[in-house]
Amino acid sequence: MTPRTATPALPLGDDALILSHRLGEWAGNAPVLEEEVALANIALDLLGQARVLLSLAGDEDELAYLREERQFRNVQLVEQPNGDFAHTIARQLYFSTYQELLHGHLATGDTDLAPLAAKAVKETAYHRDHAEQWTVRLGDGTAESHTRMQRALDTLWRFTGELFDPVDGLDSVPWHDLRATWTTRITTTLERAALTLPEGPQRSGWAAGGGRQGLHTEPFGRLLAEMQHLHRSHPGATW
C-alpha cells in the first residue's frame, strides 16, 4: 500500500473519521433519545465525508484500519475523549465551526476536494447549528450546566490553535482569515450563552508538533485499538 500521503485529503479525512468514531461512542449512552439520534447522525455524515476523502488518498479500509498511530494526520482536538456531554458539545462547537469555514472555502476552489467540500459544507452547517444551540442551552441554563460548559470550553481550548496550522497542499486557504472568522463566531455564540471565551494559550505547553505531523495525545492509542481491533484480528471479516 502506498497511500498518497501528500494529498490534503488525508488529514481532512482523518479529522472526519476520528471525530465520527468518537461521536459513535455515544451510541447507547446519550442523555436523551433525541441526542442519541443526533450524535449518531452527525457521526454518519462525518463517516461519509471520511470515506470520500480517504478514497482520494488510497484504499479507505487500509487507511482506516491498518495504519499506526503516527501515520494519522488528524488534529488532536477530534481525538479528545467525549468526557461529559458539555465536553462533546464544546468539541463539536470548535470543530464544526472550523470545518464549515474550511469546506466553504474549498468548495469554491478547483482542487479535487471541491465536490466533497460543496456537499459537506451543507451538512456541517447543521452540525454547527446543533452545537451552538446546545452551547447556549447549557451555558445559559442551570448553574451546574453553566459551570460544566465553561470547564469544557476551557479544557479543549489548548487544542484549537492547531486547527489553523496550514495543511500541506492547501496553500490557497487563507488560514489567518479563517482563524479570525472562527474566533468571531465562537465569541458571538459564547456571548449569547453567557459564557466566556477562554484566555489561555491555544496550544499545549509541549509544542514539538501536533496531529498534522502524526504526533497524538495519549487517549488516541486506545481509540485506535478499539477502532482497528476487529479488522486486524479478523482480516476481511464481513457480516
Partner: peptide
C-alpha cells in the same frame, strides 16, 4: 430534534 430516523429528516 434536528435529527431523526435518517440523516435527511428532522423530528
Amino acid at each position: 430534534s434536528r435529527f431523526s430516523s435518517t440523516a435527511c429528516k428532522a423530528l
